[in-house]
Simulated assay, not measured.
Amino acid sequence: MEEAPGGAPRRGRPPVLDRDRLITVAAGMDPRALTMTGVARELGVATSALYRWVSDREALLDLVSSTMLDRILPGQEPTASSWRAWLTTWAHNVRREFGAVPGFAARVLTGPHRDPAHGRLEAAGVHAFTAAGHPPDRARQCWYAFAVAVVGWVAVEHGHDDPAGEPRDFDALLEILLRGTAPG
């Protein structure tokens, strides 16, 4: 039996809800249709149990978005010598994470600007293009074009089969985008 602080044995059922489980269940749902009641039902807990973790539906969506952002942002800051590698890593991380949880891609990348994840993501992407040598306004435009192209590719890749049966070459997309956004 597990011990409580102070050495006494814990009584009752072990907790059925933790942060990781909450995020996993919420991330598996369509964010447009996600409700606190629906998440609680999936978790097998009372709706009131969710409010110990988040204040409302928007806070839950923000928590999932922030967690996904942590998974897709490369660990190192982009520099003048690493901006291409940083963007390539970011794109592959987006493909992996949003392929597994497609409903949250639009929210994290283009979604409500009140979502803190969106601001963090945009700042990191713009920083990559300023590290490449672009002025801030141009860096923002490069980031927007790059992010929209990557997310669009991932959305199509996970939403439709190629009728010709041809595999899509994600690395070719990245090469084209990075060549097109390199400073003149």
Rank of each mutant, 00 (worst) to 15 (best):
V151W: 07
A172L: 13
L63F: 05
P102N: 06
H158N: 14
R120A: 15
V39I: 10
V64D: 03
P136K: 01
A33V: 05
D70Y: 00
R138T: 13
L87F: 00
V126W: 01
N93Q: 12
E58D: 13
L87C: 15
H134S: 07
R120E: 12
V25S: 01
Q76P: 03
E42N: 08
G12Q: 12
W53L: 06
W83P: 06
G38C: 10
A132D: 03
D171W: 03
V108E: 01
A145E: 09
D161M: 06
Y51W: 10
A145C: 10
R19K: 07
R140V: 14
S81P: 00
T181L: 09
G119S: 15
P102G: 08
A149D: 05
T35V: 09
S65P: 02
G7C: 08
P167Y: 02
P167W: 01
C142P: 09
A132G: 07
T89S: 15
R107V: 03
T37E: 14
L43S: 05
V101F: 06
V156G: 02
G12A: 06
R138G: 05
G180W: 00
L174F: 07
E166H: 11
P9S: 09
G75D: 15
T79Y: 06
E42K: 12
T79N: 05
E175H: 08
L34W: 04
